[in-house]
């Protein structure tokens, strides 16, 4: 039976790092607030996966419990984030993050 632990931990690590990096790159190159929000979700999910993997390898449930916490928090964050995006859209009629740069220097 293929269990979670039968795949070497490095695989998870590398995979999650790549996933995380994709998220980071997404954040960096995209200007659409929604896409950035999704990229951040991607980052967080890669971490979730990593935590779950570590939890399994360490035989320690704390990691997985933390994943639940993260999911709750991420949900809250997304809720706020979407609200902010809506707010921005209302005032600027755009969700391009670089449109708003009145505050600078």
């Amino acid at each position: 039976m293929i269990t979670l632990t039968s795949i070497p931990i490095h695989y998870y690590l590398v995979f999650c790092s790549v996933l995380f990096s994709i998220g980071v790159v997404g954040v960096l190159i995209k200007r659409n607030a929604l896409v950035i929000l999704m990229s951040i979700e991607l980052m967080i999910n890669s971490i979730n996966l990593l935590l779950a993997a570590f939890s399994a390898y360490n035989n320690d449930p704390a990691g997985q419990i933390f994943v639940f916490f993260i999911m709750v928090v991420a949900a809250a964050e997304v809720a706020i984030g979407l609200a902010i995006v809506v707010l921005i859209y209302r005032t600027t009629h755009s969700i391009d993050i670089n449109v708003l740069n009145k505050l600078k220097w």
Partner: peptide
């Protein structure tokens, strides 16, 4: 205020 919250949110969650 909108701009502030957007910037704070994006950077913060990132």
């Amino acid at each position: 205020s909108n701009e502030a919250t957007l910037k704070y949110f994006l950077l913060g969650s990132f």
